[in-house]
Design a protein around this nucleic acid. Structure first.
Lengths: 165, 165
DNA sequence: TAATACAGTACCATTTTAGTCCTGTTTATG
DNA sequence: CATAAACAGGACTAAAATGGTACTGTATTA
């Protein structure tokens, strides 16, 4: 299904809740309430995000979490990276050496190119984009464009090649 | 990690082996030998691909599998779709109704946009591209471009926002 | 010193995935 | 028409990943 994990999904919900509110600091209980995610799970997610310094925590009474940077400067790629580690659509994209097929595989380089293309997409989208109306994101030409420009490579016509709903 | 499954990975290796050879028909044993993937696994993959009519099988002596269409007309998105079902980077991209957060979630629409962007990328790349030298793919402007064009939305500068290797 | 809130880790249940095997069915061929 | 080659369709198991929770510890404020 090519899916981010549920915890990663939660992290985007939690972070966008933080980005949407003007408040500076949030406890995990507050965010649990606001997102309908259980408090222990919210806590787990925020701890992970803290390790990569996407959020900053303060302990004790009146403690909580706050965003480490402006939502404009936090990309979706970094969020995924913090929760799941480096984006690698195939095994060889991240581990490169452990694959048994290595040497007789003719496509690992191309998977690397594909992986970087997806990284680029996710890197281009910020937390601020995530909380903006969907129209804004659709209008980001670099995200949704499908240019029919001249090039050497064979291309699949997108119309006939997909029946995803 | 945002990864395709191992079986899906195998499927791309197997299909590209079929695309590279001029031969028309391949038995699962031949492909197992050529790819260093075990024969039962190759067989399992080809059966799955057959269900979505990406390959055509013929039984009996001299039977085997052949590509259902030219490599130029088979997109990576369709391969993933055949092996794993619809591409959905989040749960709400595919199932839409079962999510508990539905109603109070403010970002599902935007995840839909992101999902379509990734679909577009994977849809643009064909099996023929996968077996071509990596340079060809890099030169596909629609895949790797990162346009800094004017737009309304906030953008993350790709340089500072990512430390993936 | 007591209460609040995060830190770190461990744990377990569930689900998913990978890989194999077995029992059909189809087809070419001698 | 018998036999062997090859795919079809499940069933099954082991291993791994994931999700969710709990527990103990530490920092901070009042």
């Amino acid at each position: 299904m090519l899916r981010i994990s549920k915890l990663t999904d939660y992290s985007t919900v939690i972070l966008s809740e933080m980005a949407r509110q003007k408040s500076q600091s949030f406890t995990s209980s507050e965010l649990a309430l606001a997102t309908s995610i259980s408090q222990p799970t919210v806590s787990k997610v925020l701890k992970l995000l803290g390790k990569s310094s996407l959020v900053i925590s303060s302990r004790g009474v009146n403690g909580g979490y706050r965003l480490a940077d402006n939502p404009e400067h936090l990309s979706v790629a970094r969020i995924i990276n913090a929760m799941e580690g480096p984006i690698g659509i195939t095994e060889c994209c991240t581990t490169s050496d452990t694959c048994e097929q290595y040497g007789q595989c003719h496509i690992s380089d191309n998977w690397g190119v594909i992986n970087r293309a997806i990284e680029n997409t996710l890197n281009t989208i910020s937390l601020a984009d995530l909380v903006s109306p969907a129209e804004s994101l659709v209008n980001m030409a670099s995200i949704t464009q499908q240019k029919p420009e001249a090039q050497t490579s064979h291309r699949t016509e997108s119309k006939e090649s997909i029946e995803l709903t």
